[in-house]
């Protein structure tokens, strides 16, 4: 119970997100209409991605300081989880855009920023696979991951603010606060963020354990 309470919490929160997110009352707004429910499934993906990337960078720094491969495992798998969330975020956002802005892809700085961010992290995966030696692979990919994160943050948080965007809160559009995020939306939105982030951490932790077992097994095979 002590070790896995947060997994139960994740299941409960996500069940609540699904049920309440699809059934509860939402403010009725022009253009958005019922699609505002996508808030719980699209915006939360980006929160999940950023949270996982922050964990990945923290463990990348820890790895560079200690040289312990266990920390590299966590860093890699959090990045993988973040990529999963990023792809889902792009897909859900694309669907939402189709029904509100009229096209699957619009020339919006946030969309482009997100796509470029994903390119960065796909390049990270290619870089990892191109280095055969495990210690060198861990060290170089940790360096790249920190470097990419340092560029990724201005890309998605600062640049979109300097140009017009269709997203709420920039380019003269009202932020979501103006759309009554106070009562109904918030009640599902915040638990949804936590729920998705916990699910991401769960997936990452499973894959970290798998990775460590695989390495132990490999070492046993080599040493026998």
């Amino acid at each position: 119970m002590r070790a896995y309470w947060w997994k139960i919490l994740a299941i409960l929160l996500l069940a609540y997100t699904l049920v309440a997110g699809l059934l509860m009352d939402v403010p009725r707004l022009p253009i958005l209409n019922e699609t505002i429910r996508a808030l719980y499934f699209h915006v939360t993906m980006w929160f999940g991605m950023i949270i996982l990337l922050i964990i990945a960078v923290i463990y990348a720094v820890k790895f560079l300081k200690s040289g312990d491969l266990k920390q590299d495992d966590i860093s890699v798998e959090c990045t993988n989880g973040a990529i999963l969330f990023g792809v889902l975020g792009i897909v859900t956002g694309s669907l939402w855009a189709r029904f509100t802005w009229g096209g699957f892809w619009t020339n919006d700085p946030k969309l482009n920023g997100a796509a470029i961010g994903l390119l960065m992290y796909f390049a990270y995966l290619v870089l990892r696979n191109s280095i055969p030696d495990i210690y060198q692979r861990a060290r170089i990919s940790a360096v790249y991951s920190i470097f990419a994160f340092a560029v990724f943050i201005p890309l998605i948080f600062i640049l979109p603010r300097l140009t017009d965007s269709l997203h709420p809160g920039s380019g003269g559009n009202p932020g979501f606060n103006a759309y009554d995020l106070d009562s109904n939306l918030r009640k599902v939105f915040y638990p949804a963020i936590l729920g998705w982030a916990l699910l991401g951490a769960w997936i990452a932790s499973l894959r970290v354990r798998y990775r460590r077992l695989a390495r132990q097994f490999e070492e046993k095979l080599i040493n026998q």
Binding site: I116, G117, F122, A123, Q136, F147, V151, P154
Partner: peptide
């Protein structure tokens, strides 16, 4: 980074393009 990873030409391009984009924009 790319010089450590052997496979140079392609890696140089795919690693640098996305990172350069904020500066380029």
């Amino acid at each position: 980074i790319a010089s450590k990873a052997g496979n140079n030409g392609t890696l140089m391009a795919i690693l640098s393009f996305p990172i350069l984009i904020p500066i380029l924009l």
